[in-house]
Write a protein that binds this DNA or RNA. Sequence first.
DNA 1: TTTGTTAATGATAATCGTTCTCATTTGCAT
DNA 2: ATGCAAATGAGAACGATTATCATTAACAAA
Lengths: 142, 142
Amino acid sequence: MTGTTNLKSAGLKSTLPRIKVLALFEVSGERHLSAEDVYKKLLAGGEDIGLATVYRVLTQFEHAGLLVRHHFEGGKSVFELNQGNHHDHIVCLQCGRVEEFCDAAIEARQKKAAAERGFAMHSHSLQIYADCTKPRCPHKPK
Amino acid sequence: MTGTTNLKSAGLKSTLPRIKVLALFEVSGERHLSAEDVYKKLLAGGEDIGLATVYRVLTQFEHAGLLVRHHFEGGKSVFELNQGNHHDHIVCLQCGRVEEFCDAAIEARQKKAAAERGFAMHSHSLQIYADCTKPRCPHKPK
DNA sequence: TTTGTTAATGATAATCGTTCTCATTTGCAT
DNA sequence: ATGCAAATGAGAACGATTATCATTAACAAA
């Protein structure tokens, strides 16, 4: 199965917790999950996997390049499947919805801005916080 | 004095802790301070101000627009004086030094990227994590 | 000035996300 | 099947931050 293959090729022993966590990201509708989200989904799915293991596995997956970690406002880390396509995020201030986007001009400019100041860009983090102007925003409170 | 004036015009009662914290930012060489940094500097300066108060005051200042809060990697919030001049940050991966920069092209593009996707940008957060290419980096470990 | 009211403070407990510890279990090569 | 290193789970520990609450300070009114 694909989960096991991904793990093996990432240099990770394929254990049950790792398979389940990876499957969550591959199957789940939500792309952006926190450690707590993952833990709850596993419990809800009848799995008996400890929270500590969830944190460990998520960090391993990040290091292995399977997941990308984001630091949105709110203190907690959020993970999403690394599908090679780098992108940044627009966070809706009304409903919290996260929309992905990628702007080549911004990407290029960032590298240049760093270089001009004597830095070699390693990575970057860009979030835009905004209000929906379209009527599709559910305005979900909280 | 200027500190008191700033506080009053921000709608805040001018108390000793608030005056001292604000003075720290106005006078101190470092522009980017965490709550812990502020607390330690106050102690070092002979002030007897509680950590809880520091956190409260920093948050109040943020809401009053006197300070801006940043969420760099590492979990802790970092504050700097709000001098009206928006800018983003390059964080050195070797020494942790923070350099400010502002790129008009990136700013404009962000607004446009949001607008194209049906959002009105309210604010944004951009950090570039990079390695110094110049020999000035002190490589201060941790 | 003294006084009174209310907001601000400081000490400390509590909370939250996350990491650590360590005894037990599991994956997997023998 | 067997052994052993690596992985796990439960819970303690941790660091940053927030909440609680009794005490104190700021400031307006007398």
